[in-house]
Computed example of a mutant assay.
Amino acid sequence: MSYTFDFASVFRNMAPLWDGLLVTIQLTIAANVIGLTLGFVLALLVMSRWRAIRLPVTLFIEFFRCTPAIIQIVWFFYCVPMLFNVFLGSVTMGIMALGLNLAAFNAEAYRASIQAVPREQLDAGVALGLTPFQRVLYIILPTAVRNSVPVLLTNGIGTFQQSALVAIVAVQDLMYQGKTLATLTYRPIETFTIVALVYFAVSFPVSQIVGYLERRREVLAS
């Protein structure tokens, strides 16, 4: 192979990549805030005894879980303004698309954790005179979050990685800046290798935390 690697030309122009990483982190944090909060609400609604509530929420969750994230992102960017005459910033639209996608997956994680809450705890809440809202706030929510933390963190990592898809709609995230830099320097191999290493450097520590939490939960359960 006659190709000569030249990482120096990329390292001399790293500033746009750091700017893109900040946008990617912004997208990830905001999407996780939406996914963590809305996901819990969806989990409660999908377990409702009323079919009129349960059915549309189930359809919402299955739509976002069973369609490609890239289609959802493109739909938000191009269809929402045309159908609803709503024009938001590109970063905001990216946050909405990623956040709703994450909420659907988190809802399933929460639902499994809620179903694992011991019935005795709920009965104790009733005996103490707690209202349904208080039982959700003080009994169901803490237990559900604690049991689903590994899955929630894994989903959060997935959102960090999926955020690269917003580059196709010109959101200037890490992937978009990497594509631009590769074009300017004519060094796609070196540029995308560095971009991949940046994604890895952020994702790997979180994945290790997930593994530690899963092992710790197994030890406590045994």
Rank of each mutant, 00 (worst) to 15 (best):
L36R: 11
L36T: 13
L38P: 04
G39T: 13
F40K: 06
F40A: 11
L44E: 06
S48W: 04
R49A: 02
R51C: 00
I53N: 05
R54F: 03
L55R: 04
L55A: 11
P56M: 02
P56A: 01
P56H: 01
T58E: 03
F60N: 00
F60C: 02
I61A: 05
E62D: 12
F63Y: 12
F64D: 09
R65V: 11
P68N: 08
A69P: 12
A69H: 01
I70Y: 09
I71D: 00
Q72V: 12
Q72K: 05
V74L: 15
W75F: 14
F77I: 11
F77Y: 14
Y78P: 05
Y78F: 15
C79T: 09
P81I: 12
P81L: 11
M82R: 12
M82H: 00
S90T: 14
V91H: 06
T92N: 07
M93Y: 12
G94W: 09
M96Q: 02
A97W: 02
L98V: 12
G99V: 04
A104I: 04
N106T: 10
A107P: 01
A109W: 08
A109V: 06
A109I: 09
Y110W: 09
Y110P: 00
A112L: 12
A112D: 11
A112I: 06
S113H: 06
S113V: 10
P118H: 12
Q121C: 10
Q121G: 10
G125I: 09
V126N: 10
V126L: 08
A127L: 09
L128V: 10
T131V: 02
F133T: 01
F133P: 03
R135P: 04
R135Q: 11
L137D: 04
Y138F: 14
I139Q: 05
I140G: 03
I140Q: 01
I140H: 01
A144T: 05
R146V: 06
S148F: 05
P150M: 14
P150A: 14
P150C: 14
L152I: 15
L153E: 09
L153M: 15
T154G: 15
N155T: 06
G156D: 04
G158N: 14
T159Q: 08
T159E: 03
F160N: 14
F160L: 15
S163A: 15
S163Y: 13
A164K: 07
L165I: 14
L165C: 07
L165H: 07
A167D: 08
A167V: 12
I168L: 13
V169A: 03
V169Y: 08
V171H: 13
Q172V: 11
Q172G: 09
L174D: 02
M175T: 10
